[in-house]
């Protein structure tokens, strides 16, 4: 897919940054506002997809030297592994805990194991979606 679309490429450079920021925001906000691991992951993935469409595949590969299969596996591993966190403390599998911590600048902040679990979900989603798209697109 070698296209030479100047406008698309220029816009993409800016938009990808915005999308990435949005993805991170959605991921972190997910617990209290619309968002979460799935959406964050999907939006993140769509940023990559946009990059692949706009810029040459090889260039992106060099710029983002990540094996997305590993990302997917890592994500799935994290979300399964957090489940055992509860088990170790004698709680049911996948029991999530949360607490409130006073942090400078941020004030009272909630810390929760859900974030770790959701991070796993997000990573898995990103990894799988990008892997699928890349596999198909590269197989010409």
């Amino acid at each position: 897919m070698r296209t030479n679309n100047v406008i698309l490429r220029t816009v993409t450079r800016i938009v990808v940054i915005i999308i990435l920021t949005l993805a991170v925001y959605l991921f972190l906000a997910g617990h209290h506002a619309p968002g979460g691991g799935f959406i964050g992951g999907l939006v993140l993935a769509s940023a990559f997809v946009l990059l692949f469409i706009a810029v040459d595949m090889e260039t992106v590969r060099k710029a983002v030297p990540i094996d997305f299969k590993l990302v997917a596996a890592l994500g799935a591993f994290i979300s399964v592994a957090t489940g055992f966190g509860g088990v170790m403390f004698g709680e049911p599998f996948l029991n999530q805990v949360f607490g409130y911590v006073e942090l400078p600048f941020f004030g009272e902040t909630e810390l929760t194991t859900v974030t770790i679990f959701e991070a796993g979900v997000a990573l898995a989603v990103v990894g799988v979606v990008v892997t699928i798209i890349l596999s198909i697109a590269e197989d010409v």
Partner: peptide, 20 residues
């Protein structure tokens, strides 16, 4: 539904690739 959306995406992708 949220769970279902993501799963059906994965299934559709898999079916597409099988067809291809």
């Amino acid at each position: 539904i949220l769970t279902s959306i993501v799963i059906s995406f994965a299934v559709t992708a898999l079916l597409l690739v099988i067809a291809y």
